[in-house]
Design a protein around this nucleic acid. Structure first.
Lengths: 149, 149
DNA sequence: TATTGTTATACTCTATAACTATA
DNA sequence: TATAGTTATAGAGTATAACAATA
Protein backbone atom coordinates (compact mmCIF):
# COMPACT_ATOMS: atom_id res chain seq x y z
CA UNK A 1 0.00 0.00 0.00
CA UNK A 2 1.45 3.35 -0.99
CA UNK A 3 -1.06 5.92 0.28
CA UNK A 4 -1.33 6.93 3.90
CA UNK A 5 -5.06 7.66 3.72
CA UNK A 6 -7.36 5.41 5.66
CA UNK A 7 -10.65 4.19 4.28
CA UNK A 8 -13.07 6.59 5.97
CA UNK A 9 -10.79 9.63 5.94
CA UNK A 10 -11.32 13.01 4.32
CA UNK A 11 -7.86 14.44 4.92
CA UNK A 12 -5.84 14.04 1.78
CA UNK A 13 -8.98 14.56 -0.28
CA UNK A 14 -8.24 17.23 -2.88
CA UNK A 15 -11.69 18.83 -2.83
CA UNK A 16 -11.57 18.99 0.96
CA UNK A 17 -8.03 20.44 1.03
CA UNK A 18 -8.88 22.89 -1.72
CA UNK A 19 -11.85 24.14 0.27
CA UNK A 20 -9.82 24.67 3.45
CA UNK A 21 -6.75 26.13 1.75
CA UNK A 22 -8.93 28.32 -0.44
CA UNK A 23 -10.42 29.80 2.70
CA UNK A 24 -6.97 30.39 4.20
CA UNK A 25 -5.66 31.95 0.97
CA UNK A 26 -8.73 34.14 0.53
CA UNK A 27 -8.60 35.43 4.09
CA UNK A 28 -4.92 36.36 3.77
CA UNK A 29 -5.48 37.94 0.38
CA UNK A 30 -8.41 39.91 1.82
CA UNK A 31 -6.33 41.18 4.75
CA UNK A 32 -3.61 42.60 2.53
CA UNK A 33 -5.98 43.82 -0.14
CA UNK A 34 -7.71 45.98 2.47
CA UNK A 35 -4.70 48.30 2.37
CA UNK A 36 -5.68 49.36 -1.17
CA UNK A 37 -9.42 49.41 -0.46
CA UNK A 38 -10.33 46.26 -2.37
CA UNK A 39 -11.79 42.86 -1.53
CA UNK A 40 -11.13 39.62 -3.41
CA UNK A 41 -14.46 39.71 -5.24
CA UNK A 42 -13.55 43.17 -6.61
CA UNK A 43 -10.42 41.64 -8.11
CA UNK A 44 -12.38 38.88 -9.80
CA UNK A 45 -14.59 41.51 -11.39
CA UNK A 46 -11.73 43.82 -12.42
CA UNK A 47 -9.80 40.88 -13.82
CA UNK A 48 -12.82 39.77 -15.82
CA UNK A 49 -13.30 43.29 -17.19
CA UNK A 50 -9.65 43.51 -18.16
CA UNK A 51 -10.10 40.43 -20.31
CA UNK A 52 -13.16 41.98 -21.97
CA UNK A 53 -15.61 44.73 -20.94
CA UNK A 54 -19.24 43.66 -20.82
CA UNK A 55 -22.59 44.32 -19.16
CA UNK A 56 -23.64 43.50 -15.59
CA UNK A 57 -25.73 40.41 -16.26
CA UNK A 58 -22.92 38.85 -18.23
CA UNK A 59 -20.53 39.62 -15.38
CA UNK A 60 -22.90 37.77 -13.05
CA UNK A 61 -22.67 34.74 -15.31
CA UNK A 62 -18.89 35.00 -15.64
CA UNK A 63 -18.33 35.28 -11.90
CA UNK A 64 -21.11 32.83 -11.03
CA UNK A 65 -22.83 35.17 -8.57
CA UNK A 66 -26.36 36.62 -8.40
CA UNK A 67 -27.03 39.75 -10.52
CA UNK A 68 -27.80 41.71 -7.35
CA UNK A 69 -24.28 41.01 -6.12
CA UNK A 70 -22.84 42.53 -9.29
CA UNK A 71 -24.90 45.69 -8.73
CA UNK A 72 -23.32 45.96 -5.30
CA UNK A 73 -19.78 45.31 -6.50
CA UNK A 74 -20.05 47.78 -9.37
CA UNK A 75 -21.46 50.39 -6.96
CA UNK A 76 -18.42 49.94 -4.74
CA UNK A 77 -15.95 49.98 -7.62
CA UNK A 78 -17.58 53.05 -9.09
CA UNK A 79 -17.13 54.82 -5.76
CA UNK A 80 -13.41 54.00 -6.07
CA UNK A 81 -13.53 55.28 -9.66
CA UNK A 82 -12.12 51.93 -10.76
CA UNK A 83 -14.96 51.27 -13.20
CA UNK A 84 -17.54 53.30 -15.10
CA UNK A 85 -21.13 52.37 -16.01
CA UNK A 86 -21.95 53.21 -19.62
CA UNK A 87 -25.56 52.88 -20.81
CA UNK A 88 -25.80 50.96 -24.09
CA UNK A 89 -27.33 53.37 -26.63
CA UNK A 90 -28.79 50.57 -28.74
CA UNK A 91 -30.41 48.69 -25.85
CA UNK A 92 -30.90 51.13 -23.04
CA UNK A 93 -31.55 48.34 -20.52
CA UNK A 94 -27.90 47.33 -20.65
CA UNK A 95 -25.23 48.89 -18.45
CA UNK A 96 -21.78 48.33 -19.90
CA UNK A 97 -19.03 48.34 -17.33
CA UNK A 98 -15.63 49.72 -18.28
CA UNK A 99 -12.31 49.62 -16.51
CA UNK A 100 -10.86 53.10 -15.89
CA UNK A 101 -7.19 54.06 -15.71
CA UNK A 102 -7.58 54.05 -11.92
CA UNK A 103 -9.04 50.56 -12.13
CA UNK A 104 -6.05 49.36 -14.11
CA UNK A 105 -3.69 50.82 -11.55
CA UNK A 106 -5.61 49.17 -8.71
CA UNK A 107 -5.57 45.85 -10.51
CA UNK A 108 -1.82 46.16 -10.92
CA UNK A 109 -1.43 46.76 -7.20
CA UNK A 110 -3.68 43.81 -6.43
CA UNK A 111 -1.51 41.66 -8.68
CA UNK A 112 1.53 42.67 -6.66
CA UNK A 113 -0.26 41.73 -3.44
CA UNK A 114 -1.08 38.38 -5.02
CA UNK A 115 2.53 37.77 -6.07
CA UNK A 116 3.80 38.58 -2.58
CA UNK A 117 1.26 36.21 -1.06
CA UNK A 118 2.28 33.46 -3.48
CA UNK A 119 5.90 33.70 -2.41
CA UNK A 120 4.86 33.03 1.19
CA UNK A 121 2.22 30.43 0.40
CA UNK A 122 4.62 28.39 -1.76
CA UNK A 123 7.70 28.87 0.41
CA UNK A 124 7.84 25.19 1.41
CA UNK A 125 7.63 23.90 -2.16
CA UNK A 126 10.44 23.20 -4.59
CA UNK A 127 10.53 25.15 -7.85
CA UNK A 128 9.32 22.03 -9.64
CA UNK A 129 6.42 21.59 -7.23
CA UNK A 130 5.42 25.22 -7.64
CA UNK A 131 5.24 24.88 -11.40
CA UNK A 132 3.31 21.61 -11.14
CA UNK A 133 0.82 23.18 -8.71
CA UNK A 134 0.32 26.25 -10.90
CA UNK A 135 -0.26 24.10 -13.97
CA UNK A 136 -2.66 21.72 -12.24
CA UNK A 137 -4.75 24.55 -10.77
CA UNK A 138 -4.80 26.26 -14.17
CA UNK A 139 -6.15 23.11 -15.82
CA UNK A 140 -8.87 22.69 -13.19
CA UNK A 141 -9.77 26.37 -13.42
CA UNK A 142 -10.09 26.14 -17.21
CA UNK A 143 -12.16 22.95 -16.95
CA UNK A 144 -14.55 24.85 -14.67
CA UNK A 145 -14.97 27.89 -16.85
CA UNK A 146 -12.79 30.23 -14.79
CA UNK A 147 -10.55 32.76 -16.53
CA UNK A 148 -6.96 31.52 -16.80
CA UNK A 149 -5.22 34.38 -18.54
CA UNK B 1 9.85 34.05 -21.82
CA UNK B 2 8.01 30.91 -20.80
CA UNK B 3 5.06 32.15 -18.75
CA UNK B 4 1.90 33.44 -20.36
CA UNK B 5 1.02 35.75 -17.49
CA UNK B 6 1.04 39.44 -18.17
CA UNK B 7 2.46 41.95 -15.75
CA UNK B 8 -0.72 43.26 -14.12
CA UNK B 9 -2.62 39.99 -14.16
CA UNK B 10 -3.99 37.99 -11.27
CA UNK B 11 -4.98 34.91 -13.22
CA UNK B 12 -2.29 32.31 -12.79
CA UNK B 13 -1.69 33.55 -9.27
CA UNK B 14 -1.84 30.52 -6.96
CA UNK B 15 -3.44 32.30 -4.00
CA UNK B 16 -6.07 33.78 -6.29
CA UNK B 17 -6.80 30.47 -8.03
CA UNK B 18 -6.85 28.63 -4.72
CA UNK B 19 -9.46 31.06 -3.38
CA UNK B 20 -11.76 30.69 -6.37
CA UNK B 21 -11.33 26.94 -6.79
CA UNK B 22 -11.74 26.44 -3.05
CA UNK B 23 -15.09 28.19 -3.28
CA UNK B 24 -16.12 26.04 -6.25
CA UNK B 25 -15.01 22.83 -4.52
CA UNK B 26 -16.70 23.77 -1.24
CA UNK B 27 -19.97 24.64 -2.92
CA UNK B 28 -20.06 21.35 -4.81
CA UNK B 29 -19.08 19.41 -1.72
CA UNK B 30 -21.83 21.17 0.24
CA UNK B 31 -24.45 20.38 -2.43
CA UNK B 32 -23.76 16.66 -2.37
CA UNK B 33 -23.23 16.51 1.36
CA UNK B 34 -26.76 17.87 1.83
CA UNK B 35 -28.07 14.47 0.76
CA UNK B 36 -26.72 12.95 3.98
CA UNK B 37 -27.66 15.94 6.16
CA UNK B 38 -24.15 17.32 6.66
CA UNK B 39 -22.31 20.52 5.79
CA UNK B 40 -18.57 20.86 5.16
CA UNK B 41 -17.85 22.29 8.61
CA UNK B 42 -19.47 19.22 10.19
CA UNK B 43 -16.97 17.09 8.33
CA UNK B 44 -14.03 19.11 9.63
CA UNK B 45 -15.28 18.53 13.17
CA UNK B 46 -16.02 14.82 12.71
CA UNK B 47 -12.65 14.34 11.05
CA UNK B 48 -10.92 16.08 13.93
CA UNK B 49 -12.77 13.93 16.47
CA UNK B 50 -11.85 10.78 14.61
CA UNK B 51 -8.19 11.68 15.00
CA UNK B 52 -8.70 12.23 18.76
CA UNK B 53 -11.76 13.00 20.91
CA UNK B 54 -11.48 16.18 22.96
CA UNK B 55 -13.50 19.00 24.54
CA UNK B 56 -15.28 21.86 22.78
CA UNK B 57 -12.79 24.62 23.45
CA UNK B 58 -9.97 22.51 22.08
CA UNK B 59 -12.06 21.80 18.98
CA UNK B 60 -12.45 25.55 18.51
CA UNK B 61 -8.67 25.89 18.55
CA UNK B 62 -8.15 22.94 16.21
CA UNK B 63 -10.69 24.17 13.66
CA UNK B 64 -9.74 27.83 14.11
CA UNK B 65 -13.30 29.00 14.73
CA UNK B 66 -14.97 30.83 17.65
CA UNK B 67 -16.10 28.64 20.59
CA UNK B 68 -19.70 29.66 19.97
CA UNK B 69 -19.48 28.13 16.51
CA UNK B 70 -18.44 24.81 18.03
CA UNK B 71 -21.48 24.89 20.33
CA UNK B 72 -23.65 25.26 17.27
CA UNK B 73 -21.94 22.52 15.29
CA UNK B 74 -22.04 20.07 18.21
CA UNK B 75 -25.75 20.87 18.73
CA UNK B 76 -26.43 20.00 15.11
CA UNK B 77 -24.31 16.87 15.15
CA UNK B 78 -25.92 15.73 18.40
CA UNK B 79 -29.34 16.08 16.75
CA UNK B 80 -28.05 13.73 14.05
CA UNK B 81 -26.74 11.44 16.80
CA UNK B 82 -23.32 11.66 15.17
CA UNK B 83 -21.60 12.83 18.35
CA UNK B 84 -22.29 12.70 22.08
CA UNK B 85 -21.45 15.28 24.77
CA UNK B 86 -19.92 13.71 27.84
CA UNK B 87 -19.41 15.85 30.94
CA UNK B 88 -15.91 15.47 32.38
CA UNK B 89 -16.36 14.07 35.91
CA UNK B 90 -13.10 15.60 37.16
CA UNK B 91 -13.74 19.10 35.80
CA UNK B 92 -17.45 19.49 35.33
CA UNK B 93 -17.00 22.59 33.16
CA UNK B 94 -15.62 20.49 30.33
CA UNK B 95 -17.81 18.82 27.73
CA UNK B 96 -16.00 16.00 26.00
CA UNK B 97 -17.28 15.27 22.54
CA UNK B 98 -17.28 11.68 21.29
CA UNK B 99 -17.90 10.24 17.87
CA UNK B 100 -20.77 7.71 17.86
CA UNK B 101 -21.14 4.69 15.60
CA UNK B 102 -23.61 6.78 13.58
CA UNK B 103 -21.01 9.54 13.34
CA UNK B 104 -18.43 7.10 12.01
CA UNK B 105 -20.90 5.88 9.40
CA UNK B 106 -21.70 9.46 8.36
CA UNK B 107 -18.01 10.32 8.11
CA UNK B 108 -17.53 7.27 5.90
CA UNK B 109 -20.33 8.45 3.62
CA UNK B 110 -18.86 11.96 3.54
CA UNK B 111 -15.51 10.46 2.57
CA UNK B 112 -17.20 8.69 -0.35
CA UNK B 113 -18.80 11.97 -1.44
CA UNK B 114 -15.34 13.54 -1.30
CA UNK B 115 -13.77 10.77 -3.37
CA UNK B 116 -16.50 11.02 -6.01
CA UNK B 117 -16.00 14.77 -6.18
CA UNK B 118 -12.25 14.33 -6.54
CA UNK B 119 -12.68 12.06 -9.52
CA UNK B 120 -14.68 14.77 -11.30
CA UNK B 121 -12.53 17.66 -10.16
CA UNK B 122 -9.32 15.98 -11.34
CA UNK B 123 -10.74 14.46 -14.51
CA UNK B 124 -8.66 16.67 -16.80
CA UNK B 125 -5.36 15.93 -15.07
CA UNK B 126 -2.89 13.18 -15.82
CA UNK B 127 -2.11 10.65 -13.07
CA UNK B 128 1.22 12.36 -12.54
CA UNK B 129 -0.42 15.79 -12.22
CA UNK B 130 -2.92 14.43 -9.71
CA UNK B 131 -0.18 13.09 -7.50
CA UNK B 132 1.82 16.30 -7.79
CA UNK B 133 -1.25 18.37 -6.87
CA UNK B 134 -2.10 16.17 -3.89
CA UNK B 135 1.48 16.37 -2.62
CA UNK B 136 1.76 20.13 -3.07
CA UNK B 137 -1.55 20.81 -1.32
CA UNK B 138 -0.52 18.49 1.50
CA UNK B 139 2.72 20.39 2.00
CA UNK B 140 0.96 23.77 2.07
CA UNK B 141 -1.71 22.41 4.44
CA UNK B 142 0.95 21.09 6.80
CA UNK B 143 2.86 24.38 6.63
CA UNK B 144 -0.34 26.14 7.71
CA UNK B 145 -1.19 23.90 10.63
CA UNK B 146 -4.04 22.02 8.96
CA UNK B 147 -4.51 18.28 9.61
CA UNK B 148 -3.03 16.17 6.79
CA UNK B 149 -3.88 12.64 7.92
C1' DT C 1 -44.22 39.21 -22.56
C1' DA C 2 -39.23 38.93 -21.81
C1' DT C 3 -34.96 41.00 -20.27
C1' DT C 4 -31.69 44.25 -17.59
C1' DG C 5 -30.81 46.23 -13.71
C1' DT C 6 -32.29 47.43 -9.05
C1' DT C 7 -34.19 47.12 -4.39
C1' DA C 8 -35.88 44.69 -0.39
C1' DT C 9 -35.43 40.90 2.23
C1' DA C 10 -33.74 36.69 4.25
C1' DC C 11 -30.41 33.18 5.00
C1' DT C 12 -25.73 31.23 6.15
C1' DC C 13 -21.55 31.60 8.38
C1' DT C 14 -18.82 33.76 11.50
C1' DA C 15 -17.20 36.73 15.47
C1' DT C 16 -17.78 39.43 19.85
C1' DA C 17 -19.48 40.16 24.22
C1' DA C 18 -22.25 39.15 28.13
C1' DC C 19 -23.71 35.48 30.90
C1' DT C 20 -23.72 30.64 33.81
C1' DA C 21 -21.59 27.16 36.15
C1' DT C 22 -17.84 25.44 37.71
C1' DA C 23 -13.00 25.73 39.42
C1' DT D 1 -10.53 35.41 39.70
C1' DA D 2 -10.15 32.39 35.78
C1' DT D 3 -12.00 28.92 32.60
C1' DA D 4 -15.57 26.03 29.73
C1' DG D 5 -19.52 26.43 27.70
C1' DT D 6 -23.60 29.00 26.31
C1' DT D 7 -26.61 32.67 24.60
C1' DA D 8 -27.63 36.93 22.26
C1' DT D 9 -26.44 39.83 18.84
C1' DA D 10 -24.23 41.85 14.87
C1' DG D 11 -21.49 41.76 10.74
C1' DA D 12 -20.00 39.95 6.30
C1' DG D 13 -21.44 37.69 2.03
C1' DT D 14 -24.71 35.55 -0.56
C1' DA D 15 -29.32 34.34 -2.85
C1' DT D 16 -34.34 35.01 -3.92
C1' DA D 17 -38.15 37.56 -5.22
C1' DA D 18 -40.63 41.65 -6.39
C1' DC D 19 -40.13 45.74 -9.06
C1' DA D 20 -39.02 49.59 -12.79
C1' DA D 21 -37.45 50.63 -17.24
C1' DT D 22 -36.86 49.08 -21.69
C1' DA D 23 -37.31 45.89 -25.45
Amino acid sequence: MMGMNEEGSLTGNVGFLLGKLGQVASNRFAERLAAIGLRPRHCWLLESLRAAPTNQLDLARRLDVAPSVVVDMVDELERLEAVRRVRDTRDRRRQYVELTATGRTLLGRAARVGRDLDVELLAELSARQRTALRDALGVIAAANGLPTG
